[in-house]
């Protein structure tokens, strides 16, 4: 049975890009209000798995999935599931900051407008709330009409976070969100992740980052989920030799 505290649950998930099997029999239960980190060497399937959670892999030609993924108890690959609705409930922040070539305000309002929010007052409130939640409000409140592309990389990434949060998603997916940022901007984003209190799944190639910010860590290797558990345990007393090899830097 799916417990109440479980928000994402994958059952026997196999995933293929054409003939290549990118994920092999993944089973995992991710808990509500926790930060879950996915680590592993390049090409291990961690990003692929992340993109399955909001069906962004739908756009890849030749992609095929078997097994089931549940979010909040609902099967998101069921025939009646609507990927557009799923993506409104599961937000995503990408590797490189990708604000639209629009004002900061219009970036944040993009999601709410899609679901039909039109009243200026409501949009103003949502914008402030989202920017505060992304710890960006104080820095940009006087220049909401400026192009988001004029901000620094770290600020741009937090615009993207705020843009995703404006839809009040149940879960936020983050695909190496700091890999294009400098150390100071990285620290800000990490701090935000730790304090957000949201259900976050974050893919990172940086093990120290996973150790710093996550409650649970999943280690992927060659398309398999090798080990999944509390971050402290996984980094101090890994159960699997493969995990130990990776975190001690013997390869990867």
């Amino acid at each position: 049975m799916v417990e109440d505290s479980v928000i994402i649950s994958a059952r026997n998930v196999d995933f293929y890009y054409g003939d290549f099997q990118a994920l092999k029999n993944i089973n995992i239960d991710i808990l509500r209000d926790e930060v879950t980190a996915m680590i592993g060497p390049s090409g291990c399937g961690k990003s692929t798995f992340l993109k399955l959670l909001n069906r962004m892999n739908d756009f890849v030609p030749g992609a095929r999935l078997s097994g089931e993924i549940f979010i909040g108890g609902e099967s998101i690959y069921a025939p009646e599931a609507d990927p557009v609705v799923i993506r409104r409930r599961v937000g995503m922040v990408f590797q490189r900051p990708n604000p639209f070539a629009k004002s900061i305000y219009d970036n944040i309002c993009y999601g709410p407008r899609l679901v039909g929010v039109k009243k200026p007052k409501e949009l103003d409130e949502l914008t402030e709330k989202a920017l505060r939640a992304a710890a960006l409000w104080e820095e940009v409140k006087d220049k909401l009409g400026k192009s988001a592309l004029e901000l620094s990389g770290g600020q741009q990434q937090r615009v993207c976070i705020a843009r995703a949060l404006a839809l009040e998603p149940d879960i936020l997916l983050m695909d190496e969100p700091t890999s294009a940022l400098d150390p100071i901007a990285t620290a800000k984003v990490e701090e935000w992740i730790k304090d957000s209190g949201l259900s976050i799944v974050i893919v990172t190639h940086n093990m120290q980052q996973a150790a710093r910010i996550s409650d649970k860590t999943a280690y992927f290797f060659l398309g398999e989920l090798i080990e999944f558990g509390p971050t402290k345990e996984l980094f101090t007393r890994p159960k699997e030799v493969k995990t130990e090899n990776y975190i001690t830097g013997r390869f990867g």
Partner: peptide
């Protein structure tokens, strides 16, 4: 950039919405 499309789609835009609201203006 592909990332514009991804961003719009990930926010729950349909394909045509992403094109009309984000890709075409750019």
């Amino acid at each position: 950039p592909q990332s514009f499309r991804e961003a719009a789609l990930a926010l729950g835009a349909s394909r045509w919405q992403a094109i009309r609201q984000v890709v075409l203006p750019a």
